[in-house]
Design a protein around this nucleic acid. Structure first.
Lengths: 238, 238
DNA sequence: CTAAAAAGTTGATCCGTGTCAGTTTATTAT
DNA sequence: ATAATAAACTGACACGGATCAACTTTTTAG
């Protein structure tokens, strides 16, 4: 992961309460006016409070969600062990894998902050995919990009030690979710642990290590990355 | 992972030297005769000996490969640490993620046995994707299926202990690659380790544990799963 | 406002795994 | 065939992290 330094400016800071419209993302731009109208007739808007579950793993997947505002986490739950698959900010789609495969959700999704979503009929999406090749191509692109990100996390979680993994997550949150070095963590220490495949206690201890080394500043949920280069070094050395 | 018992019959055994034709897989069935012809004009057949590299991570991805016969491994290599992403038998496509993203290969691929492939011009594939929605939809399906498999391995590698991980791999190889309980491993112990995110020594030790518990029978590369139910139990309990 | 529950924190302990070093067996090449 | 090289194996040891058990702080609910 290589980040451009100039990316970390307060001006770019993402307000998690900002609104995203489907028309902003390339996928929906590929639709004709007629198709857009059809799709909008097959959607409803839903609001979730922080902590509420948007959909459960194993449930019949009759909908695809678009995050209008807020942040959510997708996670797998198997016999009281949780693994967070990804953190999705406003503008993201949830449940795309269910378009193919067996029509069930392969993970649960929960709101990390108050979140608004559009819920689309999955069949409407499927029909568009089978008719509009540019729409389908965008779906391929979205999925492929997620795949590559997953490969990177896969490597991080299986090949790096705890410090490296947590460094990766802070860099990723800073870069891709908040777009600033100074942000309020939208998740608990337990979430941080489930995101990096470690115990909650370990996550807390490493957070403390980073703090004592002057790499970050933490108080409660507020987090400030003081030395991003050092975090990157830790990420690189594992 | 749940397997049908009747799947494990010698009659189903996959001959790794069997031939697969692009026309057999749903993706290429979606093409018109004209499109098929166009695509076939943009492919060449290549042969790789066991151990030879088909493409390197980081290289410019100008081709997508189709495995006609043989077995290959895709793996990430970062600072002398390797992680095998997947094992691909005949009938598989290699390099699909490079259609999107940055046009480079995100992993290397090497032949585990003598392998024949078709090499397609990536732009020919891209053009078809942007014109034929059914072709693009199949690409979405292929990628989504890979994603779900990756989620499962992700969970296995991050949440299970060594015995559970190796059990998963043996079940998977037996079920998805060889389609029999009695097969000749096409990979080294080191590969087995890189597939499960453990050290080679650990892989060897657990192989020995399984052997001593009468779960499998091993001599060299020959492997026979004697108690698949027990392997499944180990997989489930982690 | 207060009780209850959840989240956060810390230290002590223990076990799973990686590492290292050495030996044996199997492959490969000349 | 035989040497060279890689793969497979084994045991000893060390240490990274999980687990457990306490305790504190924050959040939630009545």
């Amino acid at each position: 992961m290589d980040f451009k330094e100039d990316f970390f400016t307060p001006e770019n800071a993402l307000d998690i309460y900002c609104l995203r419209h489907p028309e902003e993302i390339p996928l929906f731009k590929r639709l004709t006016d007629e198709e857009t109208e059809m799709l909008n007739h097959n959607r409803v808007q839903l609001s979730f409070r922080k902590g509420e579950i948007i959909h459960k793993q194993g449930a019949f997947a009759s909908n695809i969600f678009f995050v209008i505002s807020g942040i959510v986490k997708s996670y797998m739950e198997v016999s009281n062990k949780n693994l967070i698959i990804c953190i999705l900010p406003a503008g993201s789609l949830i449940g795309l894998t269910s378009i193919s495969v067996d029509n069930v959700f392969h993970y649960s999704t929960k709101a990390l902050v108050d979140t608004d979503v559009y819920s689309y009929d999955i069949n409407a999406i499927k029909n568009l995919m089978r008719k509009n090749p540019l729409f389908a191509s965008e779906l391929v692109d979205i999925t492929n990009n997620k795949m590559v990100s997953l490969y990177e996390r896969f490597f991080s979680l299986t090949q790096k030690q705890l410090h490296g993994r947590l460094a990766d997550i802070f860099l990723c949150l800073s870069h891709k979710i908040y777009k600033t070095l100074n942000f309020e963590l939208c998740m608990s220490r337990k979430d941080l642990a489930e995101l990096t495949g470690m115990s909650t206690e370990s996550a807390i201890r490493i957070l403390k290590d980073f703090k004592e080394d002057g790499i970050i500043e933490v108080s409660g949920k507020n987090l400030k990355i003081l030395k991003p280069e050092k975090l990157k070094r830790i990420s690189a050395t594992g």
